[in-house]
Design a protein around this nucleic acid. Sequence first.
RNA 1: GGGGGCGUAGCUCAAUUGGUUAGAGCGCUGCCCUGUCACGGCAGAGGUUACGGGUUCGAGCCCCGCCGCUCCCGCCA
Length: 599
Amino acid sequence: MKRTHHCNELRPAHIGQTVTLTGWVHSRRDLGGLIFIDVRDREGRTQTVFDPSDLSAELFKRAEQLRSEWVVAVTGKVRRRPEGTNNPKIATGEVEVMAVSLEVLNVAEVLPFPVDDPEAAARVNEELRLKYRFLDLRRPEIARNLRLRSKVATATRVFFDEEGFLEVETPILFKSTPEGAREFIVPNRREPGTFYALPQSPQQFKQILMVAGVEKYYQLARCFRDEDQRADRQLEFTQIDIEMSFIEREDIYRLIEGLLKRIWKVALNVDIPTPFRRLKYEEAINRYGIDKPDTRFGMEIVDFTEEFRGSSFKVFSGAVANGGVVKALNAKGLAGATQGQMETMTDTARSFGAKGLAYIKVEGGEWKSPIVKFFTETEKAALTAKLAIEEGDLILFAADQWLNACEILGKIRLYCAEVLRGQGKLNLPADRFDFLWVVDFPLLSFDKENNRWYSSHHPFTAPVAEDIPLLKTDPKRVRGQHYDIVVNGTELGGGSIRIHQPDVQKTVFEEVLQIPPDLVKARFGYMLEAFKYGAPPHGGIALGFDRLNAILCNTPSIRDVIAFPKTAKGVCLMTESPGSVEPKQLRELHLELKVPRKD
RNA sequence: GGGGGCGUAGCUCAAUUGGUUAGAGCGCUGCCCUGUCACGGCAGAGGUUACGGGUUCGAGCCCCGCCGCUCCCGCCA
């Protein structure tokens, strides 16, 4: 019964050998007097033949009983396939195994969806695939993703080992630090009314590890965030988490460029050029309207604030007078946008508080637009020149405060790219990867509703040294030593150089973020305490491991690279978790439910 | 919390303006078939149209509710 070869191993060189294969019945072709059974295992598949002229009637009869996905061991002699019957689609297609014995290791019921037909299986409702995840994972297409993920994890560990990093595990049972994402909490049986919380990330532990003298830490860390899900967000996910001491930003850039170079080589055998280009946050917003720009295509946003400062078109000149800006982008070749597409874009603009979306369609040598009648020849000439306007173009405008105007056009730029892609006018090759660093983020953002500053990244991010004096005088101008790594418009990760001076950290907590001292002490006291005892300068980064794998597997959803993902509502359809617990368990935890128990 | 899409046979889908007994392909079952690999041929079984109401002479289709999946916004320090 023990196999001698796997199902992707036999070649003409094995002809004449007696072998045993084990695996699943991938497909059967019963020709009446001759039966072909393709045996599949993790590695591939091999055709076995049951020929009654060589077999007992009993064995042939058993072979007739075989059905899809039964588990079998087949022993037989490898031989060359008869002339003209090779199957070039599979690696073992030049040979076949003439069965002499068959052992049925297990039977299988009729499957709820096909596993053997890649095209049919790919179209099956994801709900069903998730319920029968064990079948979905048998499909070579999905199994390939798991295998790639394992390879990438190993490459990561090897890389960091070579670089002198220590892999350190940090607690899953942590405590609540409610500044960030909503947390999962775990009741503590030993002390009624107290709770652990699952970490949103190992942020604080990895900084403490720097104080502990680890110097170079990494971990493939599981993180938990109880927020609503997306195609690229699960309740639990994995980060490649990194922290280093005695370094500057450049050291992180070099390290991550080396890591990604290694991963792309190992996973895809692709050489990605390094170093990556760098884009200041402000420039990213100005040109692309987003802090994670997709630079695989142009359609950049262009500024027309000066051109329209004195315009008779009051929507533009008024916005400028209010301290705002006028921006435009040229959606090349989209003059034929449908009514529905124009509406979608207008709705996008409205969702950002704009009153509408000004546009010009360049069709038949004319500018078709409700607003062009307000423009002077000079203004038109400026548009033509700076946007390189040609027949068939669609020009879209935003006039608002700087960030809002840019973000509106940023969203519209991505939408236009999607439309153009659908029309075949924009081609983005699957093997193209535009990596870039986005740097010089503002350290702080202002929360109008609560009238206070909050950290753009997190409160441990160090200000750029020369901006420290501005912390108390002009917070919005303080740049953080924060960096994001972006590829093809996806935020792959981010990190920062941290504050290592207790006094600066205290200033940020108490004076800038206005967190009351007792609260700072309760939540971060142990960190400030640790920092008193010789904290080295340090910094780090975390990369989304699931997103990384989704990009490598060229799939839009991280569910495709997670063995057992949850649905948008946080449910595992296979195990039906989460579920209810026994009253006894609740009593032990000193918990009482205010909703009826769900069974 | 909000908005969009989807839900018909085991799977993928169809079903004209609301009108006869809800169809097709694949899969499944049986029979036939010695070179198939999407094997082929013949025959057959298989439906609470997600679920609950309503309108109507009549509902897969219209209305209300509800459940599930999905995409997006909010949210994700």
